[in-house]
Amino acid sequence: MTSQTPGQALTAALRTRLHIGSRTRRYRRSHDLFAAALAAIRRADMEDVLAPGYPVLWSWEMHVEGGRVDIEQRAYLTTLTAWDFTAILGDMIDAGVSSIGEGERYFADRAEADRQAWRNRPAP
């Protein structure tokens, strides 16, 4: 059996703890699963599998929630499903995001792809 990367382990742990499936939306009975995932990372102790998520947590809050990223990129990222959100958090860890500056580079590198995904989304 192959071992998981730290990002894959974080993604799997969040999905298990919050009961997130591939069709789970961001809100469950008016409960924001993005906020719940970030709170779970914030509450994790250093021995927990979620501990590597601290830099990712601060980077997400600073750049996406804080409005530092482009408006189209922010619109795309905040409309993801909970499944995709946890995947992005794991990808950030595996990409080596360990500070807010590295998070800025991460979001800058994926900015054009996020803008295109926002522009090409299906009409409601």
Rank of each mutant, 00 (worst) to 15 (best):
D70N: 14
D70T: 06
S30M: 10
D91S: 14
A44I: 05
T11Q: 15
T81W: 00
H31Q: 13
A51Y: 11
S99V: 02
S22R: 14
T24R: 05
E104V: 06
R115A: 03
A36C: 06
T5W: 03
F85Y: 12
R74D: 10
L33E: 02
T11D: 14
T79H: 15
V97H: 04
E47R: 15
L14P: 08
P6S: 08
A87D: 13
D32H: 13
A95K: 10
P6F: 05
M92W: 02
R25C: 06
A36F: 06
A87E: 10
R43M: 09
T81H: 05
R15V: 09
E47H: 15
V64S: 01
I41G: 01
M1Q: 11
R105G: 02
M46Y: 08
L80C: 11
Q4C: 07
A40F: 00
L77K: 06
I88M: 12
A51I: 00
E61T: 15
T5V: 06
M1N: 13
A9E: 13
E65K: 07
G67Y: 06
T2Q: 13
P124Y: 12
F107R: 10
L38N: 03
G7M: 07
P122S: 14
E72A: 14
S59F: 00
P124D: 04
S98R: 15
F85R: 07
M62Y: 12
R110H: 05
A113R: 11
F85W: 09
D94N: 13
R105Y: 03
R26I: 01
D70A: 12
G21R: 11
L18W: 02
H63M: 10
S59L: 02
P124I: 15
S22F: 05
P122Y: 12
A108H: 10
W60I: 06
D91W: 08
Q8N: 09
L38I: 13
I20V: 07
V64H: 01
D84S: 12
I71S: 13
A113C: 03
T86A: 05
